[in-house]
């Protein structure tokens, strides 16, 4: 089995500050992997390195066995590495439906087509609506994203990512800012992701992490502190010291 996503000795420093320190990381097909660590551990930087939003100082990143270290963010997306953002990145003035429809069109590689494609666009809209319906968002399909409450927008952010049919999906704190009323829906949504998709989640909500993850990597000061299944992580004294100990987690 080849790894879908892997890093070797990945490093990133801003001046003298080392924020990612020789990280070796592997994501296998079907993985349900969580990345946790105290604030400032470099989780978001690491994700930005994986996706190409940041360039590493040294080390390599490979996607589906291919070295993508020097590829741009959008070309990695086209190869199947899709992410969501900690803070929503949506097309606020457009409708919910169009946000998803545009993702379908880009996935189908017709987004740059300067010729009328009424049938293609209609099919994309239908697929988008089906997807929205599956997560209870069909009734707001025609509303502008800006008019939705934040928790709802958070769901749209994940649905847009799903419309890309990613091979690897990185979820950056999907539950952040989601009120309890919508968080069950978010869990459902994440739980329903296709089995062969590799999913990496960065999350502070430990409930979500332990319910979702089969594998957990703990990052501290930019380096991998330890890795293992949830049971091993909970029992690891190192983790308790740097992470669980400092947080009042039950």
């Amino acid at each position: 089995m080849t790894a879908l996503l892997a890093t070797q000795a990945l490093c990133k420093s801003f001046g003298p500050l080392v924020v990612t320190d020789h990280v070796d990381f592997v994501l296998w097909p079907g993985a349900r992997h969580a990345l946790i660590g105290p604030n400032g551990a470099g989780k978001t930087t690491f994700v930005n390195l994986l996706t190409g939003n940041l360039r590493p100082t040294s080390g390599t990143i490979s996607l589906l066995g291919e070295d993508v270290t020097s590829l741009s963010f959008d070309s990695r997306v086209r190869k199947g590495l899709v992410r969501t953002f900690q803070i929503n990145q949506l097309l606020m003035a457009l409708s919910v439906l169009e946000n998803v429809q545009l993702a379908v069109l880009e996935r189908e590689r017709v987004g740059s087509r300067p010729l009328p494609a009424v049938a293609v666009q209609r099919r994309a809209a239908e697929e988008a609506l089906d997807l929205l319906e599956a997560f209870g968002l069909a009734e707001v399909a025609l509303d502008r994203v800006a008019t939705l409450p934040y928790g709802r927008q958070r769901l749209v952010e994940v649905v847009v990512a799903m419309a890309m049919r990613p091979k690897v999906l990185l979820l950056d704190e999907p539950a952040a800012g989601v009120p309890p009323s919508d968080s069950r829906k978010m869990m459902e949504l994440i739980g329903s992701l296709p089995g062969d998709m590799a999913v990496l989640i960065i999350e502070h909500d430990m409930d979500l992490v332990f319910r979702f993850a089969q594998e957990i990597t703990v990052l501290a000061q930019g380096a991998v502190l330890c890795q293992g299944n949830p049971g091993q992580i909970v029992d690891n004294p190192l983790v308790r010291e740097v992470y669980l100990g400092t947080q009042s987690h039950g």
Partner: peptide, 29 residues
């Protein structure tokens, strides 16, 4: 009128709204 209704035309509007989002769905902004 035609261009703005094409997938390309809509993606340009998408870039105006949020270039990061368009890159995140694979568009070469």
């Amino acid at each position: 009128r035609m261009l703005l209704a094409t997938p390309f035309g809509r993606s340009v509007v998408g870039i105006r709204e949020n270039a990061v989002r368009m890159a995140a769905i694979g568009a070469n902004v």
